[in-house]
Design a protein around this nucleic acid. Sequence first.
DNA 1: ATTTGTGCAAATCGTTTGCATCTGA
DNA 2: TCAGATGCAAACGATTTGCACAAAT
Lengths: 149, 149
Amino acid sequence: MTDFDPADTGKAVSGGEENLTGQLKAAGLRPTRQRLSLGGLLFGNGDRHVTAETLHEEAMAAGIHVSLATVYNTLHQFTDAGLLRSLPVNGSKTYFDTNTTRHHHFYCESGGVLSDVPSGAMEIAGLPEAPEGMEITSVDVVVRIRPKA
Amino acid sequence: MTDFDPADTGKAVSGGEENLTGQLKAAGLRPTRQRLSLGGLLFGNGDRHVTAETLHEEAMAAGIHVSLATVYNTLHQFTDAGLLRSLPVNGSKTYFDTNTTRHHHFYCESGGVLSDVPSGAMEIAGLPEAPEGMEITSVDVVVRIRPKA
DNA sequence: ATTTGTGCAAATCGTTTGCATCTGA
DNA sequence: TCAGATGCAAACGATTTGCACAAAT
């Protein structure tokens, strides 16, 4: 029942982020109650993988009232601002990762569970050159897994 | 205006595949007119990346009448039969690749164009171990690119 | 006061499904 | 003949959008 304190806007959000308000402003985004609340959920609990739906449910459960549309908007705005990374995992749902550093993922199709590949466990050797006139923006590696036997 | 010849069912489809009919039968799929026609488009022109939509348009343009639903069905059946590989490229559309060997892809978000990373240009070093009780089914690498400047 | 964000519900997009009809073995 | 395929259109799930209201600077 910990209400998110709207007065806490210029401070650390919940032990994770330094200054979400500042980052939002830098991105031209107003630090609204919803954005700060969602930011608290996202960045106050370590690395996370969420979908719009799971984040929305979590917000509801936490007593934060936000519409699903706003969750979508916020996730995209955060992504554009560089606070999140969107993951191209599956054909249907879009996943967002609070860890924007270079790392890769396991994805279990039966269940839609996403997890990190331990850093260092896997490397990409020899990045290829992009085709003429193109530049590489990111490299996504998805290791698909399924329950054994 | 080369009509696909329905009589050519037991033979090479168009210079690419040996015996599509046999492969379909082996997979428990009847070699119907539609499946052979779509197979001709898919396997008779070298390696290809298609979506249901692009393949459907191509079929129409070639004078082959198939419904979009049948294209979807066929793509999935071919995939299950191991003739195609489905690519988890983007959040929305599903791509299918006629090259089922291990290779990776460039994906240009602006335009949705998919192309192969030249084989050997890139390697994955050190496949990680799957989490407890899981096994790896595939590893997909997508190199996202955008037009330079 | 002005500008930007939010919520809701309707609209959209890709994909799947139910069912009557047709086709290949 | 008869199981299996196809076509159509309606159903679906995830995401986006338009517009009236609310909140932040």
